[in-house]
Design a binder for these strands. Structure first.
Length: 859
DNA sequence: ATCGTGCATGTCGTC
DNA sequence: ACGACATGCACGATA
């Protein structure tokens, strides 16, 4: 035996490795085509699943019938088996039925359904030991947990329901091996004739297929037989041998799809069964011939109500197949809708050529759209697309985030294409409209032409149209909020500003939940005599609580137990971990268990929650307002906002912020230039993140400190001035003499400072190149006074330096001196303090502030 | 220059 | 690690 290699040299796929994905049967008959590229294989020799006869016919390894794909009259129709093989429909069906019946009845009464011995019968009672069977049961239960719940009550032997679902995933390989070992000796079905070691995975798939028919029956059952139960299963099981089974004769795919329900889906389904029939639940899709499992995110989420309405009004059966949330690409101009691979292979006609098949759509208005269903080779796989969908999507006014749904009506195998507009609330009744997707003009394989699965008789009577009256009009819903129920892979979808705002609020709320990491020990940093806590480790999220105010004015804090959802009162200063339960309520021993009643009455609780919601709404409104206002961006905006706030608080005029930093040079490493903390753009002035809040807080503190110091010095200067005047009057009485008196210098410095800060406040200008601590140095070091003196007396500086032995001081302060001279010459303030640089140095360069260095522009 | 087509690639979810 | 898929991009066709 030799492996078949794809003749397409650029593909080179091996039949042996590609087999499990399923080869494509050429529509005309017999040849195997490369799954990846659709080219013919070079040799037709090797197959580990069945014999390929020289004539091109295949022989069922179970019953030895000659098989082909069913496109022409045949001895027996062929089915592509879900675990990667081929068999005639009769024997594969019987084996599937046996399995299915056994499973659906909890493996307790296997003979009842078929009336004849089955492999499962043998397997269960003769071959397989209890342990293996239990494992099999667990495995199957993963897909059948809900279905089986109904049989649990009536069948005391039903073991599946007693098994925990979390046990279902382990030992799959073992189960598969055991299962095949057990079944293969019987040699009675091609389904189990494969000793291929790779069948372990196949076994898992098979279990999915085993469970599927029950679902199909449920969906296809006539109205009134609980066909709308999310996971009906056993209730309609009895029909499998009758009419419904007949429906599988042609339409049934060998690889029905039933993915493992994701947790939310399962939960939703369970919940729907109990209390919320209108809940939008994910329905395991109808039968299909997928090569892999259909992910729950593609499960149709039509509500019972909608389905009932549709089916009831139309007196038809609708088989929801799958749905997809439109991506930006899907809804874009290109007009290509990327189809989930599994869905395309399960429910759309098989295509072997990349060109694919044309599909015609008829919408509710009677218009017909033509899609091209095709694929591209992609990473040794395929990527399925529907081309030419733009007109259809536009006519339905769909946008990224909306959901497009595919269903099928029977008989006739017509496809139904519908959509839902994305809305705010996932539980809202969403717009739902369905149009009929007529079968393709091109010949469709048995999955579509099948008359068997489920009937939708009235649709045929209606000529494939749906009565528009029963469906809400989607027009005008474009303005609705979107993206709330966007699927898990929606991160690239367009986001509207409202949604961004919502996220923003969420982010702000998240700030409230931030707590220091439990293991983190803060280091105390002293800035301007103020202590700040610095953490090396990032903060963690705590549990969200709400605060209420009593009429007496007392505040209370409430938190909800993660287990029982009851609200418990907490001390005001309590900080809870992200997960918190009643048992951790150390403050109230009477309510430290979930069984303890809630302290708040339901009415009060409702009021409190409503008020909380209102507050959030108001915050949302306010923020939205701010969003509409022109905002400076970046940390400069933040700093400007801080300055602005300062100015406002001083009664000064608000100064518009600049988004540029004209004083920055290329290569500047100041915080403004190098730091977008989020990595994605600069923070806005309204940003409430920890970083910005810290910066703002520190800035405010420093500004207050600065003002306080300033007023103190002014007062001191005034006092000294008075004293000087008094002294001078007492001595010579010549107060105007420009001598070298130190007090004069000091006075001059302070005066300059005052002018500087006035200018600062009035203009909002900030010198980003200034040393944040320069202010203090300028205030305290005589050099500034000296400069004032130099300016005042016109005495050569060098002379003065030599005279006073201040060379060393000059060296150290040379930069400042130059700056002073320059500023003086411009008639501007000497010491225009850079508020931003100040922020930067104190807020962002903690490691440097101790020694007074600044990463900004000093140096 | 624009558009359409086909493929490549990066991201992300799942196994 | 692998596969699915969203999207970017090159290239040819067409206006």
């Amino acid at each position: 035996m030799s492996a078949k290699i794809c003749m397409n040299s650029s593909c080179g796929a091996s039949a042996s490795t590609e087999w499990k994905k399923g080869w494509v049967l050429r529509s005309g008959g017999y040849a195997d085509l490369c799954y990846t590229c659709g080219s013919a294989f070079e040799n037709s020799v090797y197959c580990n699943m069945f014999h390929l006869e020289e004539s091109g016919w295949r022989e069922c390894s179970s019953c030895s019938k000659l098989l082909h794909c069913g496109c022409i009259a045949s001895e027996s129709l062929v089915e592509l088996l879900d675990y990667g093989g081929i068999g005639c429909t009769s024997c594969t069906r019987s084996s599937r039925l046996s399995l299915n019946n056994g499973i659906a009845s909890g493996l307790g009464s296997l003979k009842a359904s078929t009336g004849e011995p089955t492999y499962i019968d043998n397997l269960e009672f003769d071959t397989v030991d209890g342990g293996k069977l239990a494992q099999l049961c667990r495995l199957i239960e993963a897909n059948e947990s809900i279905l089986l719940s109904q049989s649990e009550g009536t069948d005391p032997n039903a073991r599946l329901g007693q098994l925990r679902q979390e046990d279902t995933t382990h030992s799959i390989g073992e189960i598969g091996t055991s299962f095949f070992n057990a079944t293969h000796p019987s040699g009675r079905s091609s389904t189990f004739s494969n000793p291929d070691p790779g069948s372990m995975l196949d076994m898992k798939d098979m279990c999915g297929s085993l469970s599927q028919p029950s679902l199909c029956m449920a969906l296809g059952a006539p109205p009134g037989i609980s066909k709308f139960a999310p996971f009906p299963g056993a209730v309609v099981e009895g029909k499998e041998n009758g009419q419904s089974m007949a429906s599988f004769q042609q339409g049934q795919r060998s690889r029905p799809i039933l993915p493992k329900p994701s947790k939310p889906d399962v939960a939703a389904g369970s919940e729907a069964n109990k209390t919320a029939p209108e809940l939008r639940i994910a329905r395991p899709p109808a039968d299909g011939r997928g090569k892999s499992q259909l992910l729950p995110r593609y499960w149709p989420r039509i509500t019972d109500q909608e389905l009932q309405q549709l089916s009831g009004d139309l007196n038809s059966n609708i088989v929801p197949l799958f749905e997809k949330v439109l991506s930006a690409s899907d809804a874009g101009r290109i007009g290509r809708l990327v189809l989930p691979k599994a869905c395309a292979e399960a429910y759309f006609p098989p295509i072997s050529q990349s060109e694919g098949l044309p599909l015609r759509i008829q919408d509710v208005k009677g218009r017909e759209w033509t899609f091209q269903f095709r694929f591209w080779p992609n990473n040794n796989s395929r990527m399925y697309v529907l081309e030419g969908v733009t007109p259809c999507i536009q006519s339905m006014q769909l946008r990224a985030g909306d959901t497009i749904t595919f269903s099928r009506i029977d008989p006739g195998g017509k496809l139904v294409i519908g959509y839902r507009k994305a809305t705010n609330n996932i539980t809202d009744t969403q717009d739902f409209q369905t149009s009929v997707l007529a079968n393709a003009a091109a010949p469709i394989d048995t999955s579509f032409s099948a008359d068997g699965d489920i009937g939708w008789n009235q649709s045929e009577n209606n000529g494939g149209k749906i009565n528009g009256d029963l469906l809400p009009q989607p027009v005008g819903t474009a303005e609705k909020k979107r993206t709330r129920n966007i699927g898990p892979k929606s991160k690239r979808l367009l986001m509207h500003s409202e949604d961004a705002l919502e996220l923003r609020l969420t982010w702000e709320e998240a700030q409230d939940l931030l707590r220091p990491s439990p293991s983190a020990k803060p280091s105390i940093v002293n800035i301007d005599d103020h202590e700040f806590e610095e953490y090396d480790e990032p903060p963690v999220f705590g549990k969200r609580t709400i605060f209420t105010a009593q009429p007496s004015g007392d505040q209370e804090q409430w938190a909800q137990c993660d287990d029982c959802s009851k609200w418990r009162k907490l001390p005001l200063d309590a900080l809870l971990p992200p997960k918190w339960t009643c048992s951790e309520n150390t403050w109230d021993s009477t309510r430290c268990t979930c069984s303890a009643p809630e302290e708040m009455s339901p009415k009060d609780l409702d009021n409190v929650l409503r008020v909380t919601k209102d507050i959030k709404k108001r915050r949302s409104g306010e923020l939205q307002k701010q969003v509409h206002e022109r905002e400076p961006s970046g940390l400069d905006a933040l700093a400007s906002a801080a300055v602005l706030g300062d100015s406002i608080s001083d009664g000064g005029e608000a100064v518009g912020a600049t988004t540029k930093h004209p004083r920055h040079r290329p290569g500047c490493t100041c915080i403004v230039c190098i730091q977008p903390p989020s990595g994605k753009g600069k923070h806005k002035s309204t940003c409430m993140c920890n970083v910005c809040m810290t910066v703002k807080r520190r800035f405010k503190t420093l500004m207050l400190r600065k003002k306080k110091r300033q007023s103190e010095r002014e007062a001191e200067a005034c006092q000294k001035d008075k004293n000087d005047q008094t002294d001078e009057l007492e001595t010579n009485g010549t107060s105007s003499s420009p001598g070298l008196h130190e007090k004069d210098l000091q006075y001059g410095g302070n005066k300059n400072q005052t002018q500087t800060e006035e200018a600062e406040t009035s203009t909002g200008q900030i010198d980003l190149n200034s040393h944040p601590y320069r202010e203090d140095m300028q205030l305290d070091v005589p050099i500034l006074s000296m400069m004032n003196f130099v300016d005042t007396t016109n005495t050569p500086l060098d002379n003065y330096i030599k005279l006073n032995g201040l060379a060393s001081v000059i060296c150290e302060q040379k930069g400042t001196l130059s700056s002073c001279l320059l500023s003086k010459s411009n008639g501007e303030s000497l010491r225009r303090l850079s508020d931003e640089a100040l922020l930067a140095s104190i807020g962002w360069d903690h490691e440097n502030k101790a020694d007074g260095r600044c990463t900004s522009n000093i140096g």
